[in-house]
Design a protein around this nucleic acid. Sequence first.
DNA 1: CACAATTAAGTTGTGCACAACTTATCTGGC
DNA 2: GCCAGATAAGTTGTGCACAACTTAATTGTG
Lengths: 159, 159
Amino acid sequence: MHNLIVGYGSAVTDDLVLRRQVCFALYAASRALTDVYRPILDEFGLTYPQYLVLLVLWERPDDAPTVSELGAELRLDSGTLSPLLKRLEGAGLVVRRRSARDERRVEVGLTERGRALRQRVDEIPLQIARATGLGIAELVALRDTLTRVTDTIHRQKEQ
Amino acid sequence: MHNLIVGYGSAVTDDLVLRRQVCFALYAASRALTDVYRPILDEFGLTYPQYLVLLVLWERPDDAPTVSELGAELRLDSGTLSPLLKRLEGAGLVVRRRSARDERRVEVGLTERGRALRQRVDEIPLQIARATGLGIAELVALRDTLTRVTDTIHRQKEQ
DNA sequence: CACAATTAAGTTGTGCACAACTTATCTGGC
DNA sequence: GCCAGATAAGTTGTGCACAACTTAATTGTG
């Protein structure tokens, strides 16, 4: 099961070629898309991970999930989220408060400013989709394949 | 051309849902795959970006590309590569030398140790491919779609 | 030849990611 | 009710990424 990617030449030689590797394609595409987001999100003073946190909060605006719950959605730990949330709080977009019933938990809620920002980012998904050059069907297929890969890896990790 | 991803509900509501976004799927898959690489590359004392640099050097072991040429392959700038290469040099895997004919350039070559390491990483592409749970045809299709997206974005950026 | 503009690499500062650790709180078994 | 183990968030340290900048060398044009 060598020579994974293309079936000629020596296995060793071929599989280690950069342009043949799915992982490099994934890594490069992820960074390229973040490059598309950057100037757009700059207008709102946001980074891409900060925008992702807001996406989660906008989905359930009355929920105020904990740091762990945010982390479960985004697959990020407190080492990443704690300072990020501190910056979002500094920008006046979210508030953090200790849970009353469990003092270990910190609940993250939207401020009015954070809630209002949602209305201003409507056009972003469209802009991003256009930048990929893919059609809707291709985007959906790509998303589903990637989600399947991610889920497969995470399932393996849990066992 | 709203409601990109699925054709029901309000455009605003749907397109901003995390799980519907291709970009999040890409970001999550990229990090998940890096998680698969990490314990494997740890054995060799490498990070994933360091491994990518070695892939480029292994492709043309007598070439000693410059920092810029490496950067063009990997789409990384000197701000990322300079400290990374310093670490690879510290690990005894590469050497950096000023070009004789153009003192601005720094050429990056493999040491014997760096060259030898190639023989020990043969199995990595196979291990990674297995972890994705995808078949060869799917991997190739995924790689090509992602490469197309990346190229589209970079082409737009240049104009 | 002079020198302004360009190019190459490196540096500095910010913000992720993530491992390893700390601190504070909670829970279950006795 | 006590306390060992678990859990939640935060902190520290390392290594990318990338913007903005610096320094040094080269190139093109007059």
